[in-house]
């Protein structure tokens, strides 16, 4: 269930002192900043698998068993280099080694906190969808977004941000 998406971004620019909306002009200055989403795996939204009520299910788990999945800026696509990490978790869950997993989505500090909360959830859901496509029972996967609230690296540069755009597996 791989899905390839090409997305083209158009960037509008506002002149610094502009007081009124005067339309936008195309600019590719941000192209290096925003990764294109070509060749990404696990489109979160192919699945409409509804989430189950987490009442009574664990809200925490062991985060040390599997390494986190990392994401590109403002992207919720699992990229090919990271896909193997999800596949390892899927095998372990399918072998019945663990009861379930909470996929915790995180973002870097840039952007609005509330938007990052939604983005973190979408990252967690992208990983969940990939797990489901690999045959894991949806009832054993919960998602939890922390947005930008719990960075792994407190730094303020690209190397820190890269470590913070992640989905963590909390296994129970």
């Amino acid at each position: 269930m791989k899905k390839v998406i090409l997305k083209w971004f158009v960037f509008g620019v506002v002149a610094a002192s502009l007081a009124a909306m005067t339309g936008c002009k195309k600019n590719d200055a941000g192209a290096d900043f925003y990764d294109t989403e070509a060749n990404m795996i696990g489109d979160p939204l192919m699945g409409d698998t509804p989430l189950i009520d987490p009442l009574g299910l664990p809200a925490d788990g062991n985060r040390d068993l599997f390494p986190p999945v990392y994401f590109a800026y403002d992207s919720s696509q699992v990229n090919p280099e990271e896909a193997g990490k999800v596949e390892d978790v899927a095998s372990a869950l399918k072998r019945g080694r663990h009861s379930g997993v909470i996929v915790e989505g995180h973002g870097d500090e840039r952007g609005s906190r509330e938007y990052n909360l939604a983005l973190g959830e979408r990252r967690a859901l992208a990983v969940r969808d990939y797990l489901i496509s690999l045959g894991v029972d949806p009832a054993t996967i919960q998602t939890k977004s922390y947005g930008e609230e719990q960075p792994a690296d407190m730094g303020h540069d690209e190397s820190a941000w890269r470590k913070n755009r992640r989905a963590v597996f909390a296994i129970y």
Binding site: L45, L51, A118
Partner: peptide
């Protein structure tokens, strides 16, 4: 409110 209960925020 923003909910992801349907599978997407």
């Amino acid at each position: 409110v923003i909910l992801s209960v349907s599978g997407n925020p």
